[in-house]
Amino acid sequence: MTENKNSITILDYFGQMRDSDLWFSFTRSPVIVASACVTLLYLIVTIFAPLIAPHDPFDLASIDLLDASLPPFWMDDGELRFILGTDDQGRDILSTIIYGSRISLFVGFASVIFSLILGVGLGLISGYVGGRLDAFIMRVADVQLSFPAILIALLVDGLARTLLPREHHDEVALYVLVFAIGISGWVQYARTVRGQTLVEKGKEYVQAARVIGIRKWTILLRHILPNVTGPVLVIATIHLAIAIITEATLSFLGVGVPPTTPSLGTLIRIGNDFLFSGEWWITIFPGVALVLLVLAVNLLGDWLRDALNPKLR
């Protein structure tokens, strides 16, 4: 009987979703639907990269230097085996892009999650507890906010680089990068969540819960947290785009992921050296892949922000 009831509520949820303004504004805009599809495509392709990629660019046995610097298949000398051509080592560009997107997306998601947990946690505490702790957290946030995120990520990464010997560094480089980008992004979450928490805290449903006797931390988690998720979702989406760009930038500058596990940024950097010799495809295709991904995520974030903002309706 309970099962039956539950299934009804789930159906209700779907019904509500179909009726909701969010779903309506989603289906109304083909650009947004396309962006969602592109993002989804990236996720699927990168998760199943070993199954989908035509070649394994890191399997040294399968790489043949004779295949080096082949152009895309539609140009003279191009081969259908390598749709988007090969790089100077004979690696298939399409496959390196797929594996590179995998690294880029991993770093992007991981650092967003890191920022989100840190920022939402500190924001909730700051807003709900208030007092000196709040003042301290917000002071730190203010100072950090006056420095651009990319600079902070660069510094953290540079610091780790100088602290760790090179051979160790390559092993943990990916996680250092996640930490560096994550730590540079928490302020946005913390400030928004703090502001929202202050608003929600003053609302009467929180006072009603206190009158019932519900304890502080339960109120924070059960009542306030669910009501601050809307803005957090918007920030997280936009932050994902920023994190992917930041990672690509750091890798492009040569301080990101090690060349053994290239991300899109690394691929662009490697290809940049061949730009002048006319082998543009080595750098342009990873660039296009990067922009397409970031653009799709940005479009989603932009739409989400407008759709969730009641004032804009």
Binding site: E204, Q207, A208, A209, I214, P226, N227
Partner: peptide, 30 residues
Amino acid sequence: QMQMIFQDPYSSLNPRMRVLDIVAEPILFH
């Protein structure tokens, strides 16, 4: 033994909870 009714009907109920859960909360807590 003492409960309160608030002024603003638009903010005195948690928008993310069903009415069932809102009214059940004090019963479950106590």
